[in-house]
Every structure is written in structure tokens, then in C-alpha cells.
Design a protein around this nucleic acid. Sequence first.
RNA 1: GCGGGUGUGGUGAAAUUGGUAGACACGCUAGACUUAGGAUCUAGUGCCGCGAGGCUUGGGGGUUCGAGUCCCUCCACCCGCACCA
Length: 955
Amino acid sequence: MEYNPNEFEKKWRSFWEENEIYKVTNDFSKPKYYVLDMFPYPSGSGLHVGHPLGYVASDIFSRRKRMQGFNVLHPMGYDAFGLPAEQYAITIGVHPAKSTNDNIKKYRNQLDNLAFSYDWSRQVNTSDPAYYKWTQWIFIQLYNHYYDQAADKAMPIENLKAIFEKEGSKGAKAANSLDEDFTAAEWNAMSEKDQMSVLMNYRLVYRKAGMVNWCQELGTVLANDEVVNGVSERGGYPVTKKTILQWSLRTTAYAERLLNGLDNVDWSDALKTQQRNWIGRSEGASVFFKIKDHEANIEVFTTRPDTIFGATYMVLAPEHDLISKITTAAQKEEIAAYLAYVKSRSDVDRMSEVKKVTGAFTGAYAINPITNTAIPIWTAEYVLAGYGTGAIMAVPSDDDRDKAFAEHFNLPIIDVVDKTDYPGATLSDKVGKMINSDYLNGMEVKEAIEKMNSIIEEKGLGKCKINYKLRDANYSRQRYWGEPIPITYDEEGKDQPLAWNDLPLELPEMADYKPGNSTDSPLARNTEWVNSFAQGQLETDTMPGFAGSSWYFLRYMDPDNPNEFASEEALKYWESVDLYIGGAEHAVGHLMYSRMWHKFLFDIGKVPTDEPFKKLVNQGMIQGVIEYLYMKTEKTNGYSHFLCAGLAKKMEIPSDQIAQIPIHVDMVQDYGSAQSYLNIESIQKFIEWRPEYKDAIFECPNGTFHKGNFTPQNGATDSSLRTESVVGKMSKRYFNVINPDRVIEQYGSDCLRMYEMFLGPLEAAKPWDTQGIEGVYKFLKRFWSLFYTNEKFTVSDEEPTKAEYKVLHTAIKKVNTDVDRLAFNTGVSAFMVCTNDLKKMKCNKRAILAPLLTLLSPFAPHIADELWNQLGHSTSIALEAYPEFDPTYLVEDSITYPVSINGKKRATIDCAPDLPKEEIEKMALEVEQIQKWLEGKTVRKIIVVPKRMVNIVVG
RNA sequence: GCGGGUGUGGUGAAAUUGGUAGACACGCUAGACUUAGGAUCUAGUGCCGCGAGGCUUGGGGGUUCGAGUCCCUCCACCCGCACCA
């Protein structure tokens, strides 16, 4: 019988499901291991061959751990809320709840085909009220807590009230977004409403005025990715900034702990660095500058207080509150014009035109607190409202942007750091000797910074401060498809969370869920729902996509618990994720928010660990080959004109006269190879697919195809139109997506799994090679044939030879170490080597094949169970113990030493493993080929590395 | 610009601690069995050279008996962040 996966793969998948082979119990007697995949957002287009890469890897890892006696939690779920789901639903005109469910079914089916050992009874769906009840519960917990910087943890907001009553705001060291301090007396005199607004500025989720992308023409708020080049993606209408009240997550309170926590997790350096950069910690000083003829102060943050003698002007961000207050009458017009200009520019403009220097003078002057000189106050878009204090002291001598600005507007420049001792140092390097700086003169920069910091603190001009790039996350979406925020507002506007037993606050069914005609969410139109609680009107914004994904891995531990998000016992047992595999695109989003939520839950005693993911691995992307047709940008006689890629290169047509048109890879002959081409039939197919090119000219080296006719040249009868093959993203827009279902139809699920692993290192990006899968398929056929002689299942009970045992145990050892280090590609090759060796030995002995089958089962579970069954077993091989490596089988009878002369290999010798060094040296020198190299030379030294090599140094 | 990563045959790649570079595959070449082969099997396949031999892990330099691996330097490509005070 031939290996025919289609005959048995489905059968085993049903067997596993019916017998609940992968069911995970909270059996606390076994050691636990938690392997997590980043759960997918179930998009309408389903999985492509790249998605399951990480899933296959984690599945192999989990299956092996399970066979090694661990209780392995390896669950899967769906990140079902969010903008893409809503957009997809709007596009196809189906309610998101329905389209999401349809997509989930599609995904489930595709995932099942890949034979993942998930315990589906633990499935999580973020859009399920039973799940988001707890997302809302955590939201309320965040709402009810503030960050106490003295205790360095979250504390109940009630504590804060008590402090305010006795000591006012100064009594608390708490993360907040409040500008002014207040005394106990002031607090006690406040109305309840005012107290609530004050407290709002301390909560870990809080409401503040925030900017949204507002599109007047569409009459709606747009997400960042719906804005392209400053205009709406749909329709291309202008988008402006609008300020509305929005919920925010106080991630910044955890900045330091998020940074320090990275030292204790096993993540790649690349990923840790990305998070560190995102947090962007910088030490400096915040300094207050008085404004001439005004009450107000300008607070700036600087990492270079040493350069304050060189501060010749100040810049406020265009959004800064003070601009309107301090602008002089004479400058009003200019400032207004500038602010209008800035407003017209999108974030993308501002980012892409970094080099452009723009700005305007307010007419006002600030007093440098150290030199007491008056310096002009400008506004310019190069200062960002969201970073630091939104204001800077500009030191043109030591900052590139300040310098460019000063030069452009003719502002004075005072050199304050002499860098002559540091050739090659750039402006921003913190080195050099201070000059033109009064009492700092002669100091090294480092020393000067310390000195200045102490002066600033002593004189009360400001204080040392640590600043973070990290910003509080916007937590409101003016959209339908998300978790409703469980907060109400009474007639006075006082906010209040819902009571526990009012949760979940369900998202109401709405026929019209499209974004509305105002900055309000669609939910605002459902007045019945908004007014469904006596305590006040419901918040109508919903939570963002990353809310549900910030804690889903905890719910898997105890997915059906109606009383808690997970029981204490379950949390204590499963603790945290041991291995997390997922895409690198979540490096700073999901992975940062999850960590923050986890730290918060840890603070309030709900989870046992401070970090959620011990080890994290990013799988690389599987790329596709994009096939391009070359088309001349200018039409020929009014016809589109395609060229053979080879021809275009030969003719050396400049690249601006050639357009590359991606073509569906199914139409290309020899797809993916350097010789990929279209024949006349494929050109016909292309024209049918893209009728706009039905009259196009296709010019090949041996003729021209036009309007259904091929006109040969030089007597040729046929010709081919070469396409250009480029490795790139696998994506719908390049028509090069490989659907795993089709691969499985052709080669089977085991083959797809093993091939994905065989392609290359898990973490590397690598192209999918349609032909390469044949190699793995051949291997499976060969492996199968070990069990078959003359088309009959034949396995011998004879005792294996030493050599056969050696082959088996070499594989056991190699596969084990490879899976341990997630090197699945070399693991697969170990199976190939082993199979090739056994095939050569014609080994069909049970004592070899049975353990080999268990070894293979995590990689290829179907073939393993099929052959296991044929070996006479009635249960799944997944329940067997993993084979253990026995080193006694690997003891060598003799060792082959390479013998090198001056590091170049010239011969090999075989010696007994325990032969003393002197004997090995003697043997090596006696070899004929070596003798030849020693002629006329002196042996200076012989190096013998036991069990490795011999090197003879001559001269 | 800053940060991170990667450069090894025609291709995907391997080499766990400095110790036989190119395992395992794809592709290619030749052969066998075949009416046929996109099936299977066998052999070969880094480059140059008839050969002895020489060269070879992006380029250059260094440490070492010995370097893909360590150090310095330059180059190319990929990814992330991007006016961060």
C-alpha cells in the first residue's frame, strides 16, 4: 500500500476529537507547561500558508511536552472585536456579529485541518459577553485604582480620597494628569462633582480631552489606519484634528516597571530593544522659564541642563495652551496664519518633511532663569505637543534641529561646549568642555549636568525628572464593534461604574452600526440602550481592539468560570505563559499593554506573577514569490504593450518607462523559478482575468501576440513571455497567496506541517517554494515504506542490530535537542537522515520503528497514529511516553580523526576511542599522504583534540 | 538619522562550546526500470584545474596551531522607530 494521507488523515482528526485526546484538566499533581499562540483576528479571507507557521511550531513543542509527562495548556481563541471586523462587515453588508462568527467557523475548519492539539473546550472569543464581562470588570478595577509612586504599585482610589481629605494633593505621590495642586481645605470644600473630576485625573483609566481624526465630509471619526496621506482612505476627503473627551489607559504609570521587567524575561534582544525604545526613558530636568510681562511660566524638559547658557530662544508646540495668551498684538496675524498652516498638515506630512524648517514668533519673551536674559518665544511644528511638556529651551549650538531653526530665522547662537578634544563627536553627543557658561566653564559635560541639576533644585527653578516617550494609550473608539465601557454619567455629568452584577454590559443589537454623523459612537443613537440604567446615561464609546487581547491568556486557565476571570487555584497552577510564539508586529502594542494589565492585576493580588510571558519567540514571515509582467508605461498605437521580461532587460529600457503589473501566480508557468513565463494559453487566461487588457500587445522574443493571434518572427511557432519573479509579501494584492487547504488536499496535513518547519529557522523570513514541498512528501512516503514490504504491512520482531539502535538513538538525541532550541528545521532533517539510513539497512524491526514513530508523532500526528494503529494499538500515540535517549548506543567503536597540516585537512585516520594522544600522533605521522607533506619540513608541534581532530604544525 | 538583524553553492539552508564548511532538501546532470513519466531507484553536483593541487562562508585587516564562529574596519540588504528636547 502506498502512502496516501487523504485516506486516513480525516479519520484520525475525528478520532482525536471524539476521544477528547487533547482535553486539558486542571490536574495539579502534574508539572505544568503553558504554550501560547497569539490568537488570530478572524479575517474574512481565512488563513494563508504563512499564518500557521508559529502554530505548527508551538504544537510540536506542546505535543512533545505532553508526551514527556507535563500537563500542557495549549489553547486557542479569537481576537474578534475591532475595526477590521467592523469594516469587513460594512463592506460585505453583514452584521459584524454574524460575519465574525462565520469567519470563526472558517478559521476553525482551517485550523482543524492542520491537526493542532488545542483543547477547544477552552476556546476564548473576545466578543463573547461571557468573556468581555471580565474585560469590563478589569476596566472597572483600573478605574477604581490609582498608581501610588511611593508604594510603586496600584492602590484603591478610596485611599487617595482619604489622603486628600487630610493633606490635599501634596500628600499623595500619585501618577496623575492634573495641572494644579490643591490643599485639604480646598478638597473638602469641593462639590462631589468637582471631587470626581479631580479623581478622574488619577485613575488608571481616565477621561481626558484627546485628539481624533475628524472627517467633515464623511461626518465621522477615523482611525489612524483609515487616514492615508492626510485624507480619508475612503473618498480621499480632508481629515482634521478634533478634540473630544476620550478614555485613556495610564500606561505611563508603569513605564519604569515595564522597562525593568524586560531584564527578567527570555525574549529576543531585538524585541526588548524595541520595547525599551518605545518606553524611551530619558533623565533630565524640568525647568520653569518666566514669561516677561506675564504671570504664567513655561515648563520645559531638557536632558542638557548644562547647555542652558546657550539657550537663545524657546519654542512652544503649535498646540501649546500658552500661545494664545502670550502672543502680542503685532504678531497675532502671523501666529494665526502659522497655526492654520500647521492644522492643515497631517501627522504624515509633519513626519515626512522633517527637514523643512517652519515657525513663527509670538512676540513674547521668556527670562532665562540662570542668565536672566530675555529670549524670544517661538512656535514651531518641530516641537511636539505630546512629548515632554510641549515646550523646549532651544540651544542651537548643541542641537541639530535648534541649529537649523536658528540659522533659518537668524537667531543668535552661543557656543557652550568645546568638542575639540573629541574629534568625530556629533552635536548631540554628551561630551566636551563647557565654555561661555560662567561658573560651568572648564567642566566636562557630565560634571556640568550634575552641577546644573543641583543648582536648579536648590534655587527652586525646577527639578530633576525622568521623562518617557511612552504615552498613555487612547482607550476610546467611536465605533460599534468593541466592548462597551461600563461607565455611566448622571445629569450633573458625574461618572460612575456599573455594579458587578450589572456586568456584562452587553453590546446591543443594532441594525445600523455604521459610524455616525458626529464624533459620537453609533451606540449614542440607541437611546434606549444609553438610558437603560437608572444611575445615569451609558458611555457610548467602546474599547479598542487591544483590550480583550490584554488578558486572554488568563481566561484559558479557567475559561468557564462565571464568578471570577479565573480561579485562584487555576492561576496559581498555570501561573504564566512559559512559551509564547507570535508575530513581531505586536512587539510594542499588544505585548506592552498585556504586560501593563498583568502588572496591574499583580498589584491588586489577582495574578501570581509580575510578567505574563516568560519566553517569547517571534516567528518569521513566510514570503511568496510575486510574478510581475512588464508593461510599457506608454501605449503603442493606443494599445497597452507588454514585454517579455528578458526582452525588456536586453533592450535596457529605463525603469521609469516600465510598469510592473502583478499577475496571478496560478497563470504563470514554472511559477517561482527564474524561468517563469506565460505561454499563449496563459496569456489568454490573463486577458480573461483582466479584460481591460484584452486588446493589449504581448511582445515575446519570437513573436507578438495581439487580439487572439500570435504572429511569429524568424519562423518560430511558439514563444514565451517571461515574467519577473520577486520574493515578497504573500498578499491578496499580489495574487500570490497559497491556501493551506489546497496544499493539504494535495500533500496532506502532516506534509504541510513538516514542510513549514523544514523551510528554515522559525524566526527567519523565508519564501514558500512550491517545489520544495516534494522533498518532504518523498520523505513521508519513504518513512511509510519502512513499514511495508511488497505492498503489505510487514514489521519484524527481530532484535535490532547495534547499528540500527545507533541510528534510532542518534535521531532521538538530535530531535530532542532541536525541539528544545526550537530548531525544527534541523529536527525534520534528522528524521530524513534516520529514514534514509534505516532504508539502506532495510530495517523493519518493531523495536526501532515503534519508538521512531512516537518520536515523529509531534511533527506528523496523522501518519504516526495510522501506523501506530497498524502496529496493533487501539489508542492514540499521543498518549504514549516520548522515547528517551540512551547514550550507550552511541558509543563509537572507532573515531575518525581528520589530520591537518597547518590547519588544512590532508588525511583521516581511524583509531580506537581510548587511544592515548601519543599513539594518535604516531599514527597520524605514519600516514602516507601526511608523509608527503612532511618532506623537507620540521614538525614543530602536534595538536590533538580528543575525539575531534589532529593538527600538525610544520615549518 | 537612531535601534535591531542578516550576509555561506544555482535555491532554502546546516555547522549546539573556535576544531573535517556546505548536513538535509530543492534544482540540475547522467543512468536504470518503463509505451510513457511531473512515479520510483542509482550515481554525480561549491568554484577553478586534464591532473597534482589551488581557491572558497559580503570586502579588507587582526588574534590563534586552527576562524563561518572571536576582535577591528568597510560594504550591501532586510525589519522596526522616526523632528523625542
